[in-house]
Amino acid sequence: MVKRDPEQEKEVLEWISAVLGEKLPNQPYDDLLKNGILLCHLINKIVPGSVKKINEKGGQFQMMENVQRFQQAIKKYGLPEEEIFQTVDLTEKRNIAQVTLCLYALGRLTQKHPEYNGPTLGPKMAEENARNFSEEEIKRLRDTQIGLQAGFAGGASQSGHGGFGNTRHM
C-alpha cells in the first residue's frame, strides 16, 4: 500500500474545487470523497451527463453506487483500468493513496480531451514530436556515421593485456 501524501491530497481538493467552481466544505480529504457525491459532480463537470443519477442521501450501499458510477464514467472517459481505485479503497478507507493517484490520472487525462477547457492536475502531458526525414537524409546519415551497434567503440580494446594471472609491468 502506498503512503498517503497530504500535499497531493491538498492539490487534488484544490483541483476539484477549481473544476466545480465552488469552495469545498472544510472536512478531512477521505470524508469529503467517501460518499462519491463530490466525485460524481466532478466527472459531470468534466463530461456533462456522465453520471445520470447521484444519490445525495441514503445508506452505505447508495454511497457505494455513487463511487461505482464515478468509476464507470472515468473508465468510459478513457482512464485505464489499472489506474482506477477499487470501491473499498475509498468507502472503507483501505487505500486512500490509490484514490489520490486515480484522481491525478484523471486530471492528467483531461489534457488529452480538447473539448475540456478547465483546470488540469499534475504535470503537462508530452506532445507528439514526430520527425520526418527524407530517404536521402537517412541514407546520407547511414553512410557517414558508424554506430556503436557495429562494434566500434573509438579504438578501445584489450589487446596487449596479456593472459589471466599475469602481473602488470611498470
Rank of each mutant, 00 (worst) to 15 (best):
L24Y: 02
V67D: 09
E65C: 07
D89L: 03
Q149E: 14
F152G: 12
E56G: 06
P114S: 07
G154A: 09
L109K: 12
S157C: 07
L79D: 07
Q86H: 15
F152R: 10
P80K: 13
E65M: 10
Q68S: 13
G151W: 04
P6W: 04
T91C: 13
G163W: 00
K76C: 08
K112Q: 13
C40I: 03
P119W: 09
T120H: 03
E81W: 05
L13W: 06
Q27F: 07
M64F: 00
K112E: 11
H113I: 14
R94T: 11
G58K: 00
R142W: 01
Q145G: 05
E115H: 05
N35F: 03
S134H: 03
L39V: 02
D30W: 06
K23F: 04
S134K: 03
P25W: 04
C40V: 01
G154K: 01
F61D: 13
G49P: 01
F85Q: 05
I138C: 10
N129Y: 04
A73F: 05
P6S: 06
V99M: 03
I84P: 00
G163Q: 09
K3Y: 11
Q72N: 14
R94A: 12
P123S: 06
R94F: 13
S159I: 14
L32G: 11
Q98A: 15
L103I: 10
D31F: 10
L148W: 00
P6G: 12
A153I: 14
A18E: 14
W15Q: 12
G59R: 03
L90H: 00
R94G: 10
I46P: 00
E7W: 03
G122N: 01
